[in-house]
Design a protein around this nucleic acid. Structure first.
Lengths: 189, 189
DNA sequence: CAATAAGTGGACACAACGTCCATTTAAGCA
DNA sequence: TGCTTAAATGGACGTTGTGTCCACTTATTG
């Protein structure tokens, strides 16, 4: 009989394999374009079978989301409780500019992961997008901007990883130039 | 022997099949999500073989591009030679607002096609994006905006079809609300 | 050291892709 | 009109990646 344990623990081998999968996936995503990495590749590199991989991660996106999780959480924490101008305390326009700068930093470091997880529409379905959206919306409200709902996504759109990669790689722009352009958007507040 | 005709004409059956393919593809794209339409589906619906389809259109994107072509050309024509505020003559900020409104109209009518052709990065590789980019850039230059290059893509980002569909379908916003939000972006000029 | 349930891995069926080539057909010429 | 030729056709075929399924293995608990 199974004792009525409320919290069902993950078995040791399961945890080990999860770690292996994430590690292997991180390496593969870093090495090549995300759509050239197949689920087979990841399973093979992690040294696990197909079924094991699919048991936890039904597709590439969910793996990338797991990898991104910690980085995003850290920024979310700083937005909620960090020092101004990123955290509470500064005027909305300055907080928005700081948010843009922080997001560019995140994109710079992990754009390949974001590209792996957020392809087109998928971007809007992640919890992270909801968080960014709520944050920017609250800034708009704090600034007294009328009808903020349509504006929010308009202001978040330039942070789409595809756009950033295009600006950095194809156009050869620097991080600072992108941040500067985004900062000019804060004038709409 | 073949007479040295300079312009090699498309054969009658080829022209007929091209028309069939485009017509069938338009119907299929209108009916379901673009990624649920396979090349097989299109070939079947058009009543042509697989090889015939691939001869002209190597992938879904190229078909959608062909379908979009005429609509985009019309707007491009109006931007270059139409009446103000869309065409030349009006102040840059007003022209940008008019451009936004016209693009939203285009998205409203053909977002499903754009989604079929421009998935993520692909968007930037089409000739159309280059045109929109050049247009907006010239408006920024005309308005005396310093360092326009990073700002251009920032201003075009909210026109990504994924963003528009998210705002309209998922958030339930109206066309006018989206246009209004975009119009507020023209304040950066 | 059982007993049991969670976990594993690879075989399998399937779907879509893109290519190849034997056959058909339109267009130009006598 | 009939003939020649090259363009055009279509479907069979091999390939690749997906996702599922289930007989077997292994960690955990008493």
């Amino acid at each position: 009989m199974c004792p009525p344990t409320l919290v069902r623990m993950e078995r040791a081998d399961a945890a080990r394999n999860r770690a292996r999968i994430l590690e292997a996936a991180a390496e593969l995503f870093a090495a090549r374009s995300p759509h050239e990495v197949t689920m087979d590749d990841i399973a093979k590199a992690a040294g696990v079978g197909r079924g094991t991989l699919y048991r936890r991660y039904p597709d590439r996106a969910s793996i990338a989301v797991a990898l991104l999780d910690e980085h995003e959480r850290e920024l979310q924490e700083r937005l909620l409780r960090g020092d101004p101008p990123l955290g509470p305390g500064a005027p909305p326009a300055e907080r928005l500019a700081a948010f843009y700068a922080a997001m560019v930093r995140l994109l710079e470091d992990h754009a390949h992961l974001v590209l792996g997880s957020e392809v087109g529409r998928t971007r809007f379905e992640t919890g992270a997008y909801g968080f960014w959206r709520a944050h920017v919306r609250s800034l708009l409200v704090a600034a007294g901007t009328p009808r903020p709902d349509a504006l929010v996504d308009t202001l978040l759109a330039p942070l789409a990883p595809e756009v950033y990669v295009y600006q950095r790689s194809d156009l050869g722009l620097g991080m600072e130039e992108v941040v500067e352009a985004l900062t000019r958007l804060t004038r709409v507040l």
